[in-house]
Simulated assay, not measured.
Amino acid sequence: MGKNVEIPLLTAEDIECRISTVKATGGSILLYKDARCDMRILDSVFGIYGWQRQNELIDGQLFCTVRVQNPETKEWISKQDVGTESYTEKEKGRASDAFKRACFNIGIGRELYTAPFIWITWKGNEYNNGKPRIDLKVKSIKYNSRREIVDLVIVDKDGNIRYSMTNKPKKDIPLKKDPIDDAFDLAFQEIKEAKSGDDLASIFNRWSGLQSSKQFISALTERRQQLGIFKSNEIDAKTV
């Protein structure tokens, strides 16, 4: 048998920032990779002749299968996942999303699931008429031996640090009269936007303070069923 192929960890340049939950005081940020990043890494690791992709409709859902070839044994391995449509180009969005998910299964960018909860506080005129206007990027990112994120710095277009995992200002966490309400709002918004079982597991683990809430568990279970995922040991253990 050949050696396992090492999938490189994403660099700061590979990762993009997307605003998730939006409030008047600030917003939560999700880290993601695009399809071009996946293709570049597939080319780098397996060569342009060493991987394939195929889309197919199964029960009305668009799936993507990515096949990669072991450079030593020449054996082909397949990974498949389903995509969800985007807000703009539905079919193109589904195809791209399915491809990116299949690449997650191969191991490309899986470390993003270890990202912390990221909250950015708006400054100046960054929030107008209910919409945020801000460009963010990852300045630096570090991982431990388990391929988990241990340090992360996000900056705006002017280079100002807006989030630091190891030196996060307390004021970056908005608190109102009832902090648990904000926690519920943010957690439920993340659940609504979850696109895979791994997303839901990450949300479940990150919001440990809500794990005793029946409402929180119910929302996770409902989203899991919407995605067609019928088994989750961690979540099921809390719903017994």
Rank of each mutant, 00 (worst) to 15 (best):
F104N: 09
I41N: 01
N167D: 09
L175K: 14
N70K: 05
E126H: 06
L112K: 07
I217Y: 06
R224A: 15
L210T: 02
A187L: 02
F184V: 03
I161Q: 13
V240I: 15
E222Q: 14
F99E: 02
Y32P: 06
N233S: 14
T84H: 10
D59V: 15
E56K: 13
L62G: 00
I217K: 05
N144K: 05
T73D: 10
D181P: 00
I118W: 09
L42C: 03
A183S: 08
D198F: 14
V82F: 06
R101H: 05
V82M: 12
L175R: 11
C17D: 02
R53L: 10
I48C: 03
G93N: 00
K123S: 13
I134V: 13
L210W: 04
D97P: 09
A12T: 03
N4S: 15
Y127T: 12
D34R: 07
G197H: 05
A95S: 13
N70V: 00
F216V: 01
V68F: 04
R67G: 11
E56Y: 15
I120T: 10
L112W: 09
F216M: 04
Y143V: 02
Y32G: 09
I154G: 00
R36V: 13
L62E: 03
E91V: 15
I141C: 05
E193F: 06
F216L: 03
I118M: 11
K177N: 13
D97V: 07
S212F: 06
Q69P: 07
A35T: 05
P174S: 01
G228L: 04
S202T: 09
L220Q: 06
E234A: 14
F184S: 03
I161P: 01
G197D: 03
V155L: 02
V240D: 12
E72H: 11
V240Q: 14
R206Y: 06
D185W: 15
K214P: 08
C103V: 02
L136T: 01
L227V: 03
N125A: 12
I173Q: 12
K90E: 03
L200R: 12
I106N: 01
D34C: 11
L136M: 01
A187R: 07
K177P: 00
G60F: 04
V138M: 02
T11V: 02
L220R: 05
R133G: 10
L9N: 09
R94M: 09
I173S: 10
S78N: 12
P169I: 06
V138W: 02
N167A: 10
R18W: 08
D198E: 11
P8T: 04
V240W: 11
K171V: 05
K192V: 06
F117W: 04
K177F: 14
